[in-house]
């Protein structure tokens, strides 16, 4: 173990290729990143730069072809699918562009869903869920269904769901992609609050520079490689654009 043993994410020489009919196509080449607890990282890059694949691997939804990924001290490459599910449940909270709430379930059931897979009894589950809904400012909507509230509110519900297992890391994939500017600001304020007040590590993929500006650190991908990794404020303006 080196000095980075406490890192939330430690990625070394990550390599990922997809097999197509035309042969293997590399998507990520030699990516190495370390994220320390409490960091707020924005990942940017043009379409096809590999940032979605990068996020999927970070979230243990997809596995790398080569290299090493240590999440919260565990080498992901050595885990089976049940153990990966356990990691997703306990360590990571996901926030997606499309919210991904269950349309049939009410908000408290949606938020409490991750607790089901931890075997938490119903009463306790709903209690936690209501607490989280209150935290994101939706305490009055416990029994509503996702289609009865606005997009911004749905994304806050998704954040509440991501928080319910008290994760170390929140992975947000274009969380404001479906939202207007005003609600985007509200959602980003919530992320900032979670990061600053609760010390939750956040990795956020976006293509909007003003969203990325909320983060402290910028990782920019192009053609499967990291071309910039440093403080947001030092990034050259063209690195903050969506199509550099």
């Amino acid at each position: 173990m080196d000095g980075n043993a406490d890192a939330v994410i430690r990625i070394e020489q990550l390599y990922k290729e997809y097999l197509t009919e035309a042969g293997p196509v590399p998507v990520l080449k030699d990516v190495s990143v370390t994220v320390e607890p409490g960091e707020f990282v924005a990942v940017m890059g043009p379409s096809g730069s590999g940032k979605s694949t990068f996020m999927n691997i970070l979230g243990c939804l997809d596995v790398a072809t080569g290299g090493r990924y240590v999440l919260n001290g565990r080498d992901v490459g050595t885990l089976d699918s049940d153990q990966l599910a356990h990691l997703r449940n306990q360590v990571i909270g996901f926030v997606f562009q499309g919210f991904n709430l269950l349309p049939r379930a009410n908000l408290e059931d949606n938020v409490g869903l991750p607790l089901i897979y931890r075997g938490v009894p119903r009463g306790e589950r709903l209690e936690h869920a209501r607490e989280m809904l209150a935290k994101v400012g939706l305490g009055a909507y416990n029994r509503s269904r996702p289609n009865q509230i606005s997009g911004g509110q749905q994304q806050r519900v998704a954040i509440a769901r991501a928080l319910v297992n008290r994760p170390k890391l929140i992975l947000a994939d274009e969380p404001t992609g479906n939202l207007d500017t005003a609600t985007s600001k509200e959602v980003m304020a919530l992320f900032t609050e979670l990061n600053e007040r609760d010390g939750i590590t956040i990795v956020l993929v976006t293509h909007e520079s003003d969203i990325a500006a909320n983060a402290h650190r910028l990782v920019r991908l192009a053609d499967g490689r990291i071309i910039y990794d440093g403080p947001v404020e030092h990034a050259a303006p063209e690195l903050m654009g969506s199509t550099a």
């Binding site: 939804l61 599910a85 356990h86 996901f94 991904n100 709430l101 269950l102 897979y117 297992n165």
Partner: peptide, 16 residues
Amino acid sequence: TREIGIRMAIGARGKD
């Protein structure tokens, strides 16, 4: 299928 994906993302195992 999508619901299954969501459930798996938040920690459902295959057996769940």
